[in-house]
Computed example of a mutant assay.
Amino acid sequence: MSLELEHECPECGETRTFWKVASMEVHLGTKMKWDCPECDYGFVQIDGNVDSSAV
């Protein structure tokens, strides 16, 4: 699994390279926390299916 992810940052208003800052196994799958190095916006993904940035 990569330590970087290209993703739209709502705070910066453009696509940024997010860094994985945490990862752990939960009952739904692998939970990963990603942070934007430019503005510190962060979001969580669970197994790539659940994405808190979509809220």
Rank of each mutant, 00 (worst) to 15 (best):
M1N: 06
M1E: 12
M1S: 09
M1F: 07
S2N: 11
S2E: 15
L3T: 09
E4S: 12
E4L: 14
E4R: 14
E4Y: 14
L5Y: 02
E6R: 14
E6K: 15
H7I: 03
H7M: 02
H7F: 11
H7R: 07
E8G: 02
E8N: 07
E8M: 08
C9Y: 11
P10S: 04
P10C: 01
P10H: 06
P10E: 04
E11N: 12
C12D: 14
T15R: 08
T15V: 15
T15H: 10
T15G: 13
R16D: 02
R16A: 08
R16W: 03
T17C: 01
F18K: 00
F18H: 09
W19M: 04
K20S: 07
K20D: 00
V21P: 00
A22H: 13
A22M: 02
S23I: 08
S23F: 03
M24W: 02
M24R: 12
M24V: 06
E25N: 13
E25K: 09
V26F: 06
V26G: 11
V26W: 01
H27G: 02
H27D: 09
H27Q: 08
L28K: 13
G29P: 03
G29Y: 05
T30M: 04
K31P: 03
K31D: 02
M32N: 10
M32Q: 11
M32Y: 04
K33N: 08
W34I: 06
C36T: 12
P37R: 10
P37C: 12
E38A: 13
E38D: 14
E38Q: 14
D40H: 10
D40T: 10
D40N: 15
D40R: 09
D40G: 05
Y41W: 12
Y41D: 07
Y41V: 05
G42K: 01
V44K: 06
Q45D: 10
I46T: 09
I46E: 00
I46K: 00
D47K: 01
D47F: 02
D47G: 12
G48M: 04
G48F: 04
N49T: 06
N49F: 06
N49A: 05
D51E: 03
D51S: 01
D51C: 05
S53Y: 11
A54R: 15
V55L: 12
V55M: 15
V55S: 09
